[in-house]
Write a protein that binds this DNA or RNA. Sequence first.
DNA 1: GATCGCGGTTGATTTGTATCAAGGTGAAGC
DNA 2: GCTTCACCTTGATACAAATCAACCGCGATC
Lengths: 241, 241
Amino acid sequence: MSGQIPLVSPSFLKCSSCSLGKLCLPVGLDKKDMLELEQIIENFSPYKNDEKVFEADQKFDKIFAVKSGMFKTLVIDTQGNEHIVGFHLPGELFGLDAIYPKKYIATAMAIGTSSVCAIDYPELERLSGKFPSLQHQMFSLMSKEVHNSQSMMVEYSADQKLAGFLLSLSSRYKQRGYSETRMHLIMPRRDIANHLNMAPETVSRLFKRFQSDGVVDIKRTDLSILDMEKLRQLAGCASDC
Amino acid sequence: MSGQIPLVSPSFLKCSSCSLGKLCLPVGLDKKDMLELEQIIENFSPYKNDEKVFEADQKFDKIFAVKSGMFKTLVIDTQGNEHIVGFHLPGELFGLDAIYPKKYIATAMAIGTSSVCAIDYPELERLSGKFPSLQHQMFSLMSKEVHNSQSMMVEYSADQKLAGFLLSLSSRYKQRGYSETRMHLIMPRRDIANHLNMAPETVSRLFKRFQSDGVVDIKRTDLSILDMEKLRQLAGCASDC
DNA sequence: GATCGCGGTTGATTTGTATCAAGGTGAAGC
DNA sequence: GCTTCACCTTGATACAAATCAACCGCGATC
């Protein structure tokens, strides 16, 4: 398990009782509308580490909301290299990039034991037309997604990319009510490196340098941000300032 | 002028008579609904080269659809460096990343003489709830946007980035009814380089190499793609395959 | 408790791309 | 037609990060 995220419990299967309601799709829905939203949501049993939620090229029919744990989405290029497109935290949606092409572009996998809500997309469109606040939230979340991936393009040096990545995690955890300074990097270094287009060795060296500069404290998967301001400077503030 | 894009004419001010209807927001709307959409669209006179449509941090109220020419969106980091986030072709929307934060994240500028439709966002949300096909198109376009910016993150060598960029332009022009093999690179090399996080010198050298490898033919701003397959190989097919 | 194996770290070397510096080229203006 | 200037190209050098290689540490397995 991720260490930060509580295990999914049976009482946790409905939006109305889900602690992620403030971040996830149901923002602004009243009880009655939320019940209707719950009708189109399917709850799967938790995925094990590296288990696939969907694969690239598969027909698109559902979008997914992370309920607990963490998921990664990745694409495979013609040379067979994997590229991790994103890490997804509780309350975040993935599969949104599949709406336009009507098929999944990436493959989604669990990191550690993790669970999702599966939301039928045609039904979601229908309900969005019916509930303005649901539609608003969908536009907001997609806008955020656009913004996130664009801000990733802006950093170019390895320092900036890694610092930006840590800041992004930090602010996303903060939003979810977790500490913004202490977190668990449950994904392997290799995955962080891959996501940021760098070698695992570079990640390792940078972490060491950040540590000796007093910016962070890292022991295996445990990260503490000691100097948020310095980290922002390192990132060039492209990600979150 | 861009050379490829016809000048905006008075008869061109309405969605119903706009040649971009098949790509832009009104996809699937009937005549009557389109008239209602037109009510919330404002037509500005064309922008001159480098003229700003909006600036970062400005309050968000409108999204923009390119009518003719080309626009770029850019962010400025703490060190004062500009980063070009994207180039926008006719029928494409920009400003979508501002929905969530309720303020513009980037600054948008015209490249050459170019024109836009300005669409009042609160009204657009209202109409989207009313017209399912408009909502569907909004979701589609935003999905595409997410996909585009994510696929940019995937390429890492300079070859891949530049090849991917050319392929992206090619497929976008093709969709718009222009040639997919011959195009006008109206933006300066400096801007291409900036967008792809590389030095202008590198762009120049790569173009030269692509040319001597028989992949493209470039004379100043005129680009012909001679070997689409080789270009796709160079890109690693991350962008468009 | 010893062994295995994976993930992570550290060091040496190579490579791709940025940077620096100089020269070329074409469009706009006089 | 000549000048000018911005943009682009070309070459030499420097540097950041990848790669290659070895080693370490720790959990899993027997």
